[in-house]
Every structure is written in C-alpha cells, then in structure tokens.
Design a protein around this nucleic acid. Structure first.
Length: 474
RNA sequence: GGCGGCGUAGCCAAGUGGGAAGGCAGUGGACUGCAAAUCCACCAUUCACCAGUUCGAAUCUGGUCGCCGCCUCCA
C-alpha cells in the first residue's frame, strides 16, 4: 500500500484515491520565460516517478501540469515586472513567442530526462474565461471584493486560511518587506485579477476592464476544469506551500464549498553549496548545459539517488558517482541481452520475486527511491553472480524483464541503448567471435586494436574465461 | 521574529526503539596475454554535541551548536 507524505497533515498517509482506479493529479508547471534548470529537473523527475509508480500499481492516472505563459507581477503591490514581458523586451519578441520558445525548450529537456508528457498541459493564457468565471463566483459568494479594476480575495472570509502552511495571522513578521497595495482591505488579501496599465502587453477583457489574472488563479481554474472540484493529488515545490498553494486552497474551496486537494505532495530543492538553486539567486545550472557534460540518464539517476523531500546538493562528484552507478546497471542489462521467453528456474524466480517485493516496499514508503535503487543494485550483484555460470535463456529473460519493468518502467532510467536491435546483436556476436579468434591465435596487437576501435565507437568488449569474447553496446 | 526542515564513513545516501542498507571512491585478492567488466574480502564499536527516558536510542524527550527553506517571483 502506497503511503505519501501529505503536507496537509504533516505525516505519511496511505494513499486512497476518491474513485479507484482513477487518480487525478495536478502538478505546478513552469513559467516559461527561460530554459529549465536542474531544480526543474529534480521536481519533474520526482513527480514523473510518482506518476509512473501509480501506473505500475494499475491506477488510471490523469496527469495535468500547467504551462504558465502569463507573466505575473513579482508581488501584489505593483512593484514588480511581468516576467514574460520583461524577457520579451530583452529578446525583442512577442510575449507569446517567448512562451512558445521556452515551452518547447522545457519539453525538450524533460523528454531527454525521460519524463513522460503530462496528459494535459494547459496554458494559462488559454483559460482566461475559466479564471474570470472563478473570480465572478468568488465575488458572488462574498469572498472577494473589487477595488477599481482590481479584485482581491478577502482572506478574513476564509477561516481555514493558513492551515496548509501552519501560518496564522499573528505569525506574520512585523514590518514586512512587502509594501501593501493601497487598495487592499487587509495586507493578507491577495489579487485575483489585476487592472492592466497602458504599458502592460498581456491583457484580457474582463467584466472589470482590461486586466490579467492573479498568479494563484490559473492553477485553481485549470485543475478544476480538467480534474473536478476535488483533486486526489496536487504537487509542487516546497517553496510554493506559502503563499501559492495556501491561496489556491482558499479560492478553490471558497468557490466550491468542497475540499480542493486530498494529498498535497511537495518536493525539496536543489542547492548549490547549501544554498537554494533558483532563478532569483542566479546560481542555477541549466539542464541543456548539464547535458553537454553528462548523459541525461546520469542526471536522472543522480536525482533519484536522494529522496524527493530531501534537498539535493549539486556537485560534480555526485554526478560522477551516478555515472558509475548507471554504467553498472547498463552493463548488467546488456549482459542479459534480449533473451527469448521461457520458463525460468525456481531460484531465479525467487530472486526476481524478492527483488520486486522489496522494491515495492521501498516505493510504497513515500517513494523512497534511494532504497529502491539499493534493492536494484543488490539484484545486479546477485544477477552477476548467476551470470558467472551458464544461465538459461529463460532466466535471463525474466531478469531482463524485471529490470525493464522497475528501473526503466517505474524509475524511468533507460538502460538499453537504441542500438540493441537484432542486426546490431548479430554484428556484435560476429565481432566478439573475431576478437576471440585473434586472441586464441595470440594476435594480441590486432585483437587490442579491435577492442580500442570498438570502444571508440561506443561498444565494450568483455573477455570470457575460455578465450571467447563478448561485444556489447554501451 | 513566526512556521518548517536538516546534521549518518573521504563523497553521496537509506534507516527513525533491539543486526549501521546501497552507490561512488579506496585497499588487498581471484580471473586475464594486458585491460575492462565481474566476483570475493576489507572499508562508521558508531550516527553534530550534552543530558534524560528505557533492559536497550542514530532512532523518543529536553537542551546546546551549526546549516537550510518559506514568510517577495521561484520547481
């Protein structure tokens, strides 16, 4: 039984969807005004593994992740700038061109990382009517008020405000850094709709004049549009617990009268020298740059080696460790080959069953991927020991099947290079025979040149006891 | 100041009342023409520190020190 840490109760809870086998999940997506960095990578890999594991458990998952292509102000006080607009001016493009460009970049990077595409990737700009409707409802129900062209949520009308983040009204720092917008009744009130000034490019016509939505609004509107009024799971980064998710709860619950989200799942940050990696600090490493030096699967494994709720401190040493670990997995997988099916021996069946049971136990415990990986590495050792002897094809088949199901299927770590098709395998075995022939005839120079050339081309050579050799793609 | 979290070997990282997982790096050995891969052995009497509860604590309680996140856009 899968347990997830629910921020709402601050403890692990058994996961039970409202209407099994269906699971509705919404994850806060990126604001598309720049390339994705490792922090995005960690977040979306974590949620990808959640999705994959739920599907492995035979749930029918609908996964919605927004694309924020409406630039929001940096605060509610008109002090900041619209980020998309700012980037658009910088690159001399339309804001929507910026959105298109970085949406494509985002998906490209996520594809390389092996993340499955969300089932729906709704754009905020494409759901303005839904957002306006939500504001209207809140006004009608007396949870919001109008001040000129601005609409604010009246926090005093929603007593539960603060439950998710554990913040009460008195907690707020005296002399806060935010200068309160002048037309708010209460500093804690937040904007639902903002009046657009002359120089604001992205704006829409609303009952309250030309304007644009507040930054919490799109998630409420789009998640409920596609997943209903009560979601099973809502995910995002911990930094969004307050104020973003707190405000989402307030405006959604106030509008529907129903519980908005049953399980709140938050992932932790990537840090650099102990400091948060973030756009505002400027200490981020872009995924596209990281991929120049490291295979995306190395990056993925690196992320999965720590728990999603723990911070991950970025280091080359860590990535190098992940690289070696990945090679170990890949080598083992390639030794199993693409075997034929058959009936496996009892011993291997036991090993496979035990591995799967323990893997699931780790994943059931709030997606403990570091433990799950430990289970896989123990399986690799056991499998390698078996491979020292002669192993029936059927045994290789079930071991390969398990690895493909758990490592690739659930964790999303691709272990098979695309060049393991039938013809490549034939060529590999011919080249293996050739090296074996050369070695048996003590033509070591020729044999080693073949090995070096193959290494350059991305194939590894392994000499077996008895003089035969084995060639596999790396 | 308020809320939340963290401190486990050279590095990374699980474990949260009764055997200190796993990976990387390292050392020795087996195998090999050499290598790689693989296997075997070794690698934390100890879990930031102090006090307490307990037959028993890395794990619970209290305190000390250090670090981080949120309270402003952020995955």
């Amino acid at each position: 039984m899968l347990s997830l840490y629910n921020t709402l109760n601050r403890k692990k809870q058994e996961f039970l969807p409202q209407e099994p086998p269906f699971v509705s999940i919404y994850v806060c997506g990126p604001t598309v005004y720049g390339h994705s960095h490792l922090g995005h990578g960690k977040s979306y890999v974590s949620f990808d593994v959640l999705i994959r594991y739920l599907r492995y458990l035979d749930y029918k998952v609908r996964y919605v992740q927004n694309i924020t292509d409406v630039g929001h102000l940096t605060d509610d006080a008109d002090a900041g700038e619209d980020k998309l607009q700012k980037q658009a001016l910088l690159e001399k493009l339309e804001p929507m061109e910026i959105a298109e460009k970085y949406t494509a970049s985002y998906f490209h990077d996520m594809d390389l990382l092996g993340n499955l595409r969300p089932d729906i990737s709704p754009r905020a700009s494409g759901h303005i009517p839904e957002q306006i409707e939500l504001v209207k409802t809140l006004l009608e129900k007396g949870h919001a008020y109008q001040a000129g062209g601005n609409i604010y949520f009246d926090v005093s009308s929603f007593p539960e405000y603060g439950r998710l983040s554990g913040r009460t009204a008195d907690d707020q720092r005296s002399g806060t850094r935010i200068s309160t917008a002048g037309d708010k009744r209460n500093p804690r009130d937040f904007a639902l709709w903002k009046d657009a000034g002359e120089d604001h490019i992205l704006k829409w016509k609303s009952p309250w004049g030309w304007g644009y939505p507040g930054w919490h609004l799109e998630c409420s509107a789009m998640s409920m549009r596609y997943l209903g009024e009560t979601l099973d799971i809502h995910g995002g980064g911990v930094e969004n617990v307050f104020p973003h998710h707190e405000c989402e709860i307030a405006q959604s619950t106030a509008a529907t009268g129903k519980q908005f989200v049953r399980y709140w799942v938050h992932n932790n940050m990537v840090t650099v020298d102990g400091r948060k990696m973030g756009k505002s600090l400027g200490n981020f490493t872009l995924l596209r740059d990281l991929f120049q030096r490291w295979d995306p699967m190395v990056v993925r494994l690196y992320i999965l080696r720590s728990h999603y709720r723990s911070p991950l401190d970025f280091s080359d040493q860590g990535l190098a460790g992940a690289k070696s670990g990945l090679e170990r997995l890949v080598t083992f997988r390639s030794r199993l080959g693409s075997a034929e099916s058959g009936i496996p021996l009892l011993g291997v069946k036991e090993l496979v069953n035990k591995t799967e049971t323990e893997f699931r136990k780790a994943m059931d415990d709030d997606l403990n991927t570091p433990s799950a990986l430990a289970v896989l590495f123990e399986f690799v050792r056991a499998g390698n020991i078996l491979l020292e002897g002669s192993v029936p094809e059927a045994d290789k088949f079930v071991m390969a099947g398990l690895l493909d199901s758990l490592a690739t299927g659930v964790l999303g770590v691709e272990l098979v290079s695309e060049s393991t098709g039938g013809s490549t395998q034939d060529l590999c075995s011919i080249l293996g025979e050739l090296r074996g022939y050369l070695r048996k005839n003590k033509l070591f120079q020729e044999a080693d040149k073949l090995r070096d050339d193959l290494a350059d081309a991305g194939y590894s050579v392994r000499d077996l006891p008895g003089g035969d050799s084995e060639v596999t793609p790396v």
